[in-house]
Design a binder for these strands. Sequence first.
DNA 1: ATGAAAGCGCTAACAA
DNA 2: TTGTTAGCGCTTTCAT
Lengths: 342, 342
Amino acid sequence: MSGARDGNGTGGRPKRPTMVDVAREAGVALRTVSRVVNDDPTVGPEYAAKVQAAITALNYRPDERARQLRTGITGTIGAAVRRIAEVNPELAAIEQTARESGLTLFAASTDFEEAREREILVSMCRQRLDGIIVEPFGENHGYLQPELDAGMPVVAMDRPMSGISVDCVMSDNASGIGTAFHHLTRYGHRRIAYVGDREQVYSGRERAAAFRAALGAHGQSLDGLVHPGEITPERVAAALDTALYGPEPATALVTGSMDTTLTVLRVLGPKAASRLAIVGFDEVPHADLLQPALTVVAQQTAKIGRTAVELLLARMADPGRPVQAVVVPLTLTVRGSGEIPV
Amino acid sequence: MSGARDGNGTGGRPKRPTMVDVAREAGVALRTVSRVVNDDPTVGPEYAAKVQAAITALNYRPDERARQLRTGITGTIGAAVRRIAEVNPELAAIEQTARESGLTLFAASTDFEEAREREILVSMCRQRLDGIIVEPFGENHGYLQPELDAGMPVVAMDRPMSGISVDCVMSDNASGIGTAFHHLTRYGHRRIAYVGDREQVYSGRERAAAFRAALGAHGQSLDGLVHPGEITPERVAAALDTALYGPEPATALVTGSMDTTLTVLRVLGPKAASRLAIVGFDEVPHADLLQPALTVVAQQTAKIGRTAVELLLARMADPGRPVQAVVVPLTLTVRGSGEIPV
DNA sequence: ATGAAAGCGCTAACAA
DNA sequence: TTGTTAGCGCTTTCAT
């Protein structure tokens, strides 16, 4: 049976067999095929065998789209993150946790562009994904309110969302900066400078503020020591000039992000970098290969990613639960650059 | 109208409005709503306005799944790669090229596990994606033959697939190794060693073979110089011992992959590494921050990713076209480590 | 320019 | 245990 090549004569693309085709081939009802495909135990062994044979003979593959349309669930969650093809331990943790939970992950890069972010989020909503994790960037996410009202579970990661109230997990920026600062004071430093991202973005704002607070609590003035701003070689070089070569030079440095750390190292060059005490905020790839190896306060990225999925699962299970904000502490990793004494 | 909260009384999850609801709200036929949603120009302005108003009032969002089921196309291509969430320029290029082509990208990590790879590919086929790019790992992809027969476009990237015949794009491993080798001979090196991945994997096999050929063509014996194998600190340390501290020590080294390069640098330590001439195969993150900065032959990863999408698009457009294999040359990036003379 | 009705491939009530 | 039937939400002939 079923020997003929395909129903098609000439050039048309081959048509895939459907459940109806399998049912006809096996001589059973559609419903029975569905039962076999879904491992329903209430099918007689000989029927099951006949169906299996037909499935193999026709190379039948169920159409997931139809299944999803009918059941209403996709078994897929979305992740809208800065970049999927860069080092992104949160995303790695999300992917693994999703897999452990039997969910497929659909990840897309916002590139930290507001328009792109919106495009991705709206697209995920149109696909009726079971839930969305977003590392938010844009300034107003009010356009998602109707989706939330319609029951779409959303979790924010690394930054809070603006204009809507959703579950959220992020690092304890303030205490991380404090850890970096106090680690350096332990090695005798009193003049400690900060270079980090611009205060227009949430994390840049939080970390600069925390550094100012640390300086104040330590009885230091802020003059020439705190340099949030655009991370470009020029801007970073100017900041370092002010901080390191002024009348009261800083002897130690806290950087506010991975990008800042790398730019600082490039601007300083190997000789200057090896003499200055540096604690980086956030891990740097292959930090152990640098000279000196880089001491950092690292975000618990894996924990953050895992928590994001857990928050999402909780909300999927109970849409009415109160909105929750989880804060994750950072951990100090000592490697050398932060232990250079005054 | 439509003022009531939702059709729902108590705890049930809110039901989304469908096209029928919009049609009823607007007092038009279903077909008209569909026309408006799809920007069909043959709708009268007042009808269009009424429909738009209803869409806004109900916060209607079309269900992409239903659309896909009906039209048969998803507008989505899949990419099964080693790892998302790591530096992966091929994937970045795929994502960008897909976006430029108006396609959504669905990426998943195989982790270079055969079972995982198969799971992902089968899942993508069940979702009826418009096409699949795969960085293959497994040894037998024959299970995909029925999908190919059913018209599923598949393109292999970085490695060929086994057991099936599909379009493919990859680096010119042999000539890349040749470039690295000859660059070192230009600085007077005659004893040049190779450490790289095990020959069970395609690229490891190709590169080791190319290195042996280069040695041979240069009139050198192979003894103690060629070390393919597992990339572990122990194995790499043993290989380096043999190559660098034997009776005729090598004065230069070619590594066979990014992982190999990083492991070699870690095993050697900063002092030994700064004395040995090294050319890495493939780019290393922040290679410019190392001391000395690392000279590499880099794969044209962006070109490879872009080409993969282009091959896929071509096959989607013409399923009958002959299978094509594209080979992309590597480029030498001089930074210091490869220009240390004998 | 608009509408009525069929059906994409599947699951889920309900019958038998 | 198996089959019949009615949709999921949309697009698409085909009439009007």
